[in-house]
Amino acid sequence: TFVEFNGKKVEYPTPEAAEKAAKKLAKKLNLKVTKKNGNYKLE
């Protein structure tokens, strides 16, 4: 499962880990999380 932000793509071993990381990053970077095709994107 990938988390995409600032043009970077980071892969996580589980969807749970990706979701957790996405939410944490979104909060830190003041972005919102969108889920697309099972992957997460911060914008």
Rank of each mutant, 00 (worst) to 15 (best):
K23T: 13
F2K: 03
P13R: 10
K36L: 15
F5E: 01
V3R: 00
V3I: 08
N30T: 05
K27I: 11
K20R: 14
T14M: 03
N39K: 05
E19R: 11
A21K: 02
K35L: 15
N6L: 14
L29K: 05
L42E: 02
E43K: 05
G7V: 01
F5R: 02
P15W: 09
A26D: 01
A21I: 06
K27T: 10
T1L: 06
E4N: 04
G38T: 03
K9T: 11
A26I: 03
P15S: 10
G38C: 07
E43A: 07
V33G: 00
N37V: 04
K9D: 03
K24H: 13
L29E: 04
Y12F: 13
L42C: 03
K35A: 08
E4T: 07
K41S: 13
K32H: 09
K41L: 15
V33A: 04
K9L: 12
N6K: 09
P15G: 07
K9G: 04
A18S: 01
P13L: 08
K27A: 13
G38H: 05
V3F: 04
K35Q: 12
L25H: 02
L29W: 14
K9V: 13
K27D: 11
T14V: 03
P13E: 09
T34V: 14
G7L: 03
E19L: 14
N37R: 06
A22E: 00
L42F: 04
P13Q: 09
A18P: 00
N37F: 07
N37Q: 08
N6Q: 10
K24R: 14
A26C: 05
A17P: 01
Y40S: 01
E43H: 10
Y12A: 00
E19S: 08
P15V: 10
K36P: 06
E4F: 10
E4K: 03
K35E: 12
K8M: 13
E4D: 05
A17H: 07
E11Q: 13
A18H: 00
T14I: 03
K32F: 08
V3N: 01
A22Y: 02
E16G: 09
E4G: 02
P13V: 07
Y40K: 02
T34W: 06
N39V: 15
E43Q: 09
A17S: 10
K28A: 13
L29N: 06
E11L: 15
L29I: 03
A26L: 02
K8P: 01
V33C: 09
N37T: 04
L31C: 06
P13Y: 07
K23E: 11
K9I: 14
T1E: 03
K36H: 15
